[in-house]
Design a protein around this nucleic acid. Structure first.
Lengths: 183, 183
DNA sequence: ACCTGAACACCGTTCAAGT
DNA sequence: ACCTGAACACCGTTCAAGT
């Protein structure tokens, strides 16, 4: 996937940064870049060379999870009718949001980036797939797009653990109802 | 309303801080506390004496607007059926969000504070009033509360001006539909 | 009782020097 | 070609000294 030629030490440093970042995120709920560099045993400049922005680092950290989320969309569509598939997909997002709060930030960040580049990004594509199926089906209103949904479920990243348990899934139900055609 | 005895210079400084803060917010889209102190011509410590946290300052800055929002709820209810009143109230929130992005931050912040104190805060009370009327009426689902709605409309604070114009009100419609009883 | 502003703490970011 | 880490910039926050 990543055919970039790199010096061996560069590749190793990159890996060490990623692992250090995971360690930092696991303990605290924040990601101080200098702390990551220190943990990784590299200079701060090296971190910036590999990940020019915090979002780049987050995106890499959660690429695996984001990939799973993306891959789930067509699978769910094959197994359920569109609106159910969408509901199930929301469930997965809620799962990630609960266990790894950072996924949401990465999702939002990634979508932002790609929207400005006039593409939709992987998460956006997955959502578009689900929404389009629902629109064709008549179970999803036709005047919504992926970005709308990303915005609506963005509250997930602002809930603490207790509140996520109390309200997270319930609110997704409300959003889902809002996405149905009026009347 | 504020019966606290203060020295004359203290009162004056407080006012100067508030006005300086408004000026700063008007020009930039951010609120650097040291910049406010400088603009106001007071020491940083003075700012902290009057407003221990950034939220305290924001709350004061937008108290007038928040009061208007709160006062609008019963008025709207007297003039319209509950679900329409709620829709109109949303419109007002959207107005504020568009013109003064800070109102939303203040609203969210204020609600947070007061929730933890087991009261609901003025905005929460206004929303509860609207929701209760709708529930009694059968036009609002019974399993939602003010905090749910605050979370759902929180995206408003994350839109830039262009996107606010494109999606702000539209998304409120979707939220409103989600708040209706299912089926 | 209140104010001032130097000083500290903290973090992100850059860049000259080194390998 | 890549790395290091001192250094800078920036902001929030505190507190000793002053009125």
């Amino acid at each position: 996937m990543n055919g970039i030629r790199r010096r061996a030490d560069a590749t190793e440093n990159r890996d060490r940064i990623i692992q250090a970042a995971r360690r930092v995120m696991a303990t605290a709920d924040e990601l101080k870049l200098n702390a990551v560099a220190k943990q990784a045993g590299v200079g701060q400049g090296t971190l910036y060379r590999h990940f020019p922005t915090r979002d780049h680092l987050l995106a890499e950290l959660y690429r695996h999870d984001v990939d799973e989320l993306v891959a789930a969309a067509p699978t769910l569509l094959a197994e359920h009718d569109p609106i159910t598939a969408l509901a199930r997909w929301f469930d997965r997002v809620a799962d990630y949001a609960q266990v790894k709060r950072g996924v949401l930030a990465a999702v939002e960040g990634a979508v932002w980036q790609d929207l400005s580049a006039h593409s939709h990004g992987p998460i956006g594509d997955a959502l578009t797939l689900l929404l389009d199926a629902g629109k064709a089906d008549g179970t999803v209103r036709t005047d919504v797009d992926a970005r709308d949904v990303i915005l609506l479920i963005g509250y997930l990243s602002r809930l603490d653990e207790t509140e996520a348990n109390m309200r997270g899934r319930h609110l997704l139900t409300i959003v889902l109802d809002g996405l149905r055609p009026s009347q």
